[in-house]
């Protein structure tokens, strides 16, 4: 029974990512490599952050501001990392194009680029879910469960799985938005990503209040869904645009 519950938590947090992985990523080895390396990058960022915060933890006060600073530094650091990732991706794209020319294959399609961004985002998302949710799941396979005082409506594992799902969504699709924004020099897209990330992080601070999760988690889902919607709209716009532009040339 508890085994079933544990597997359920895992699937709740990672089910959509798993579906994305199986249908889209796993058929293209290169995307798997991208996914793995972006997961690794996220892990490294987490280790660096925890090394930095090790000095100050555990926070004794009940005041909110140290936590807010923690979230702020983390988000800033990870968004900085995204810029570096973008640089790396840019170089890699040139190499891939050169390589494609050499072997007389078509260059990267727009959808290819988006898939690379998606794989990178999925790597971040999966890393998030793995380290914030799955990493703590070990006890949930055992014969008991765990409730936190401040949110005692559901087991801790269930809540963290639900929160992780929201973050997986945000991380995955904000990478697509960000890469498109960088590629097109679109300021709105570039700025909306850190903003979303920061808002989502700050929303989890609501959970610190007693019973705060009743409010915090739905709000988090609003953010996640709007990220998803925004990304969908943007991709649709790009695809239709290029379709129109490219069709005459391709013939």
């Amino acid at each position: 029974m508890t085994l079933g519950a544990g597997i359920g938590y895992v699937l709740l947090a990672l089910g959509p990512s798993l579906a994305l992985f199986v249908t889209l990523i796993s058929t293209k080895p290169f995307l798997i490599l991208i996914l793995l390396s972006s997961t690794l990058v996220w892990l490294i960022s987490l280790i660096v952050l925890s090394g930095f915060w090790k000095v100050f933890l555990p926070i004794k006060t009940t005041a909110l501001w140290p936590y807010a600073i923690l979230i702020l530094t983390s988000v800033v650091f990870q968004e900085g990392l995204r810029l570096i990732l973008w640089r790396g991706y840019k170089k890699m794209e040139d190499m891939l194009d050169a390589f494609a020319d050499r072997v007389a294959k078509p260059r990267l399609y727009l959808t290819d680029k988006m898939q690379i961004a998606l794989a990178g985002g999925l790597g971040h998302g999966v890393a998030h879910a793995v380290f914030f949710c799955l990493g703590l799941l070990t006890p949930s396979f055992g014969p008991a469960t765990f409730y936190v005082d401040k949110c005692s409506y559901a087991p801790f594992f269930l809540i963290s799985a639900i929160i992780s799902l929201a973050f997986v969504t945000i991380h995955t699709f904000s990478m697509v938005i960000a890469f498109n924004g960088y590629a097109q020099g679109n300021k709105t897209d570039q700025l909306i990503v850190p903003a979303v990330h920061l808002i989502a992080g700050m929303l989890t601070l609501v959970n610190l209040a007693s019973s705060g999760c009743v409010v915090g988690i739905p709000l988090l889902y609003v953010v996640a869904l709007s990220t998803l919607a925004y990304c969908g709209k943007m991709v649709w716009r790009r695809l239709t645009e290029t379709q129109i532009r490219l069709t005459p040339q391709n013939q």
Binding site: L43, S50, K54, L57, L70, H128, F132, F167, H197, L208
Partner: peptide, 24 residues
């Protein structure tokens, strides 16, 4: 290297934040 980094640095941090239901 990652084993010990995770064990020494990351684990307390992540457990601390996520048992408070804080994530980013």
């Amino acid at each position: 290297m990652f084993y010990f980094l995770t064990r020494v640095l990351m684990e307390p941090f992540v457990v601390g934040t996520s048992t408070n239901l804080m994530m980013f």
